[in-house]
Design a protein around this nucleic acid. Structure first.
Lengths: 345, 345
DNA sequence: ACGCGGCATGAGAGCGCTCTCAATCCTTTC
DNA sequence: GAAAGGATTGAGAGCGCTCTCATGCCGCGT
């Protein structure tokens, strides 16, 4: 049954009148029907479909103090969010898990510099039951907003700010992944191995740089071999150009994301360096673009979708447990990283 | 002021008590403060910040019948949503415009085949004041859901289903854009011009194909020169391979999206065809990837971000006008398309 | 036949907010 | 100085739903 936008939608009261029962009984049926006689339940169900009744969510969450929704906050300009397949994949995992639990996903984008203020207000207004937050930078104001809202929060990536010891998060073993990448380059005989990092105020970027250092022959360490590509394709392009200028003799690059690696490959080609003959390249993420580059990218695989799913699952567990539940308290999760060898290095 | 998650957030009542006024007065101040004496207003404001009061949105929208949120529904699997920069750009425009009007954006993704059912329920439950919907296919059940919910709706792309004559939408002149692309290829001396289309149950894809036919020399029309690339990169790759097999003598391709064009370029390279020497390629969209391909892509520009902004603006006007307002009724918008010549054709 | 436990149902009190309407208080004007 | 008129403020009735508690009904044991 369709309602014109000006006529009011039917309420519980209306359904109750039609089914010849009380509001309370209709409410019980709508919420599962436990404790209602089969015959009555059917009668109410019929009234519901006849009238096209849909519960008013505002009224419901006013009394239950639950919204059935989880906010996903991404601390990046949309430019990056939609340019980097990483977010899409993670979101997909989250989305899958949430909808299985019949929970709505609210995507909050931070448009402006001051956007966190809006987001904080939104969270505090009680639009969501919990928060998933990722891609955080060291002195991002967002975690404080989440904290202030009092909502259970799960972070994507290990939080790096002070006082985050008790935070719940899902991360991959970035440091180990980086080690594998660099070891692989060394095993293939590369001696001058550079690195293109992400923004170092993110723990994932810092951890990968640390892993690079771990696996490097200390004798070949050289600050000129390190450049920041900001986790964007253009950044990777630029960083690669800088590296080639500062250390023309480099023969390997570990690029801390596939997206940056695609940029780096372009620069290498433009400079006439052949990959992998002259320079070996290893990326990080193993998202779709990795297989599409020319040549296909050797990279470090992290199951991004699974990470998203884990984040959601952690949060749902937390929500189900209730505010003060100490037993069965969920704990942070760290997933492994594995090297995928293709043709670039 | 931060509240532990178990202690209740302060209510209007609490603020009123602290400021020594009535609930009604606090409500006035919170909603702008019109008609409240300056001194009282200040006192209330102080009480608000002292207590860290944030209005409960459920209670508010229960009475106002407004949520301050707009739902954006994308009728595609997330795989496409996050792989195609088109959506990101459009969303960005929408997001900009909405946040300027202090309206929240709710992104609803359709995960499963049956996802529209969930979405319909969500819309009907009154979580949003209006709907923005794009990338619709001919017999998509989503518009019916939007219709049933009674919410004002604006579509991205001209709706193609029956009974959509009165629908509000924003579109570009796809047919004209396609004509320009094909005319350009002809002007460069191409005689056997193929086309890689999107899914033809979308009006944008059909319109571009029509434009291709308009501009083609009728004498050279040939069904073997038409292939469907499904608006994805892999689809473009595959379609290009099919075309080369069916018509090895082709010397030009009009590819109906940049993403598909990037795939087509890969296939051409793999088959040893030089671009633009052997085959001229023109894309559609002019999104970031267009400039990054090798060679950079000649393409048809549509201002996707602006389209998003226009969609949001249209919806906001509609919402502001109220349900039955006939005066100043917003009308569909069609934006122009322009050719951007780079190196691929 | 009576009382009791258990299940199904209804009555009614809110959840936190907005908004109408009446009451109050100042000015202003004659 | 008093009445009129406008600006402030407060009281109170809901918005639609959930949930507790009281009530009514049944079959059971004694």
């Amino acid at each position: 049954m369709v309602h014109a936008s000006n006529e009011r939608r039917p309420t519980l009261e209306a359904v109750a009148a039609r089914a010849g029962v009380s509001r309370a009984t209709v409410s019980r049926v709508v919420n599962g029907g436990a404790g209602v006689r089969g015959e009555v339940r059917e009668r109410v169900r019929r009234a519901v479909t006849d009238l096209g009744y849909v519960p008013n969510s505002a009224a419901r969450s006013l009394v239950t103090r639950r919204t059935g929704a989880v906010a996903v906050v991404i601390a990046e300009p949309e430019t990056r969010v939609f340019a980097d397949p990483f977010f899409g994949r993670q979101l997909r995992g989250i989305s899958r898990e949430l909808s299985a639990a019949d929970t709505q996903l609210l995507l909050l984008l931070q448009e402006t510099r001051a956007g966190h203020e809006r987001i904080g207000r939104y969270l505090s207004a009680g639009h969501a039951d919990g928060v998933l937050m990722f891609s955080l930078h060291r002195d991002d104001p967002l975690p404080a907003m989440a904290e202030a809202s009092g909502l259970p929060t799960v972070y994507g990536g290990r939080p790096g700010w002070a006082g985050a010891e008790r935070a719940l998060y899902v991360d991959t073993d970035n440091r180990d992944g980086a080690r594998q990448a660099v070891r692989h380059l060394r095993a293939r005989g590369r001696r001058r191995i550079a690195v293109i990092t992400g923004p170092l105020d993110q723990t994932s970027a810092q951890d990968r740089l640390d892993g690079y250092r771990d696996a490097l022959d200390p004798a070949t360490a050289d600050p000129r071999l390190i450049a920041d590509g900001g986790f964007t394709a253009q950044g990777g392009e630029r960083a690669m150009a800088e590296l080639l200028a500062a250390a023309p003799d480099l023969d390997g690059v570990f690029v801390c994301s596939d997206l940056m690696a695609s940029g780096a490959l372009r620069t290498l080609r433009a400079h006439g360096r052949r990959v992998p003959e002259d320079v070996g390249v290893v990326g990080y993420d193993d998202l779709d673009p990795a297989a599409w580059t020319d040549p296909p990218l050797t990279t470090v695989r992290q199951d991004v979708e699974e990470m998203g799913r884990l984040m959601a699952r952690l949060l749902l567990r937390r929500l189900a447990a209730g505010p003060g539940a100490a037993r069965d308290e969920p704990a942070p999760v760290v997933t492994p990283a594995t090297l995928v060898v293709r043709e670039s290095g």
